[in-house]
């Protein structure tokens, strides 16, 4: 499958990239690792007029410890993340998540920024032009209907990123650069939960940096897929728990991937945990609650009921691991 024709731009600074993007935000795409973008382009899911390559911009790939925590440049590759000693020592769950993306070459090519900003996925959307031509054009691809849920003008595609749950569990913030300057926001606000436009980036905005606060508490990442490699998570889970000196839980974050139009945080389940003790009873209660807060759809070959089941099992496993440690 050949790539469609496009104009190719190599900006020298991020500002230049942002301006180029703003000049034609609908017809332009940003290229980072390319493992998501180029597949979509080959399949003609997107046919941009212009490709703006971020990789030729210097100093966008870094991992540096500062006083607010760890700063990671958006162009840092997943492979570099997984090799970083700092990350392995301070945020081992992030190392794990990076090592679970695709396979070796995907990790070498893929970047943290690209991984966070990857497109939502759907079995009716991430297919070739021929395949999609068998059915009516779906809403996400520019048509009127959704093949997952037969309602017009709604898209139920699924967010399947590995890193977002962990980084959200770590309470990360992101720095975004646009034509009008920089802004910072909590990572979770990057995601709109709108399948058609899953990211909240405004016209010309580019993800520049990820900030992870000083390590505290304990974080786990568990990913479930059929085979031990290559696949996106069928369901994955990041769990973060902070305990007080008396052993009571002071804060918890439960974030899933693969079960909604963005990373899904089980807020009610999190609340249930606060001030409690991590025991069998709580594990039962919390995992039952959490699966009520997710909304898996039939966007992959796995059934929603099964995804829900696995989500519960993953959370139970993670909580048990936390209890034992």
């Amino acid at each position: 499958m050949r790539l469609p024709r496009f104009e190719y731009i190599e900006p020298r600074t991020l500002k230049e990239a942002a301006n180029a993007l703003a000049a034609d935000s609908k017809g332009s795409v940003l290229l980072a690792g390319g493992t998501d973008l180029l597949v979509s382009m080959k399949q003609r899911v997107i046919q941009p007029k212009r490709v703006i390559n971020l990789k030729t911009i210097p100093r966008l790939a870094y991992i540096s410890n500062g006083k607010e925590g760890l700063r990671i440049g958006a162009l840092t590759t997943l492979h570099d993340l997984s090799l970083s000693r700092t990350i392995r020592e301070q945020y081992p769950a992030l190392t794990e998540a990076a090592k679970e993306v695709g396979a070796y070459a995907h990790q070498v090519m893929g970047t943290i920024g690209g991984n966070l900003c990857q497109g939502n996925r759907c079995r009716f959307y991430n297919q070739s032009a021929f395949w999609r031509g068998v059915r009516r054009l779906c809403f996400k691809a520019g048509g009127e209907i959704c093949h997952v849920v037969r309602k017009p003008k709604e898209c139920h595609s699924t967010y399947c990123g590995d890193l977002a749950p962990v980084l959200m569990a770590l309470d990360s913030r992101i720095k975004i650069l646009g034509p009008h300057g920089e802004r910072a926001l909590p990572l979770k606000r990057l995601f709109t939960r709108d399948g058609k436009r899953p990211l909240s980036l405004k016209k010309g905005e580019v993800l520049k940096e990820i900030l992870i606060p000083e390590p505290s508490g304990k974080t786990l990442y568990l990913k479930w897929r059929l085979r031990g490699s290559l696949e996106f998570p069928v369901v994955s889970l990041a769990l973060h728990i902070e305990k007080g000196t008396n052993g009571a839980i002071e804060g918890a974050r439960i974030i899933f991937s693969g079960v909604g139009p963005g990373p899904v945080e089980a807020l009610e389940a999190e609340k249930m945990m606060v001030n409690g003790l991590l025991d069998e009873e709580m594990i039962e209660k919390v995992s039952d609650q959490a699966v009520r807060e997710i909304s898996p759809m039939r966007t992959s070959i796995h059934s929603p009921a099964f995804k829900r089941k696995i989500a519960g099992i993953l959370l139970r496993q993670a909580l048990e691991q936390m209890m034992k440690s």
């Binding site: 079995r123 297919q127 395949w131 068998v134 059915r135 085979r227 490699s229 290559l230 696949e231 070959i301």
Partner: peptide, 25 residues
């Protein structure tokens, strides 16, 4: 792992991502 899944005659998983031939793992 493996099954060519069809729905009304259309192969739903015509790729190595969705059709699971065993990997080294």
């Amino acid at each position: 792992y493996e099954e060519v899944i069809t729905e009304k005659g259309q192969v739903l998983n015509p790729s190595f991502l969705d059709y699971g031939i065993p990997t080294a793992m």
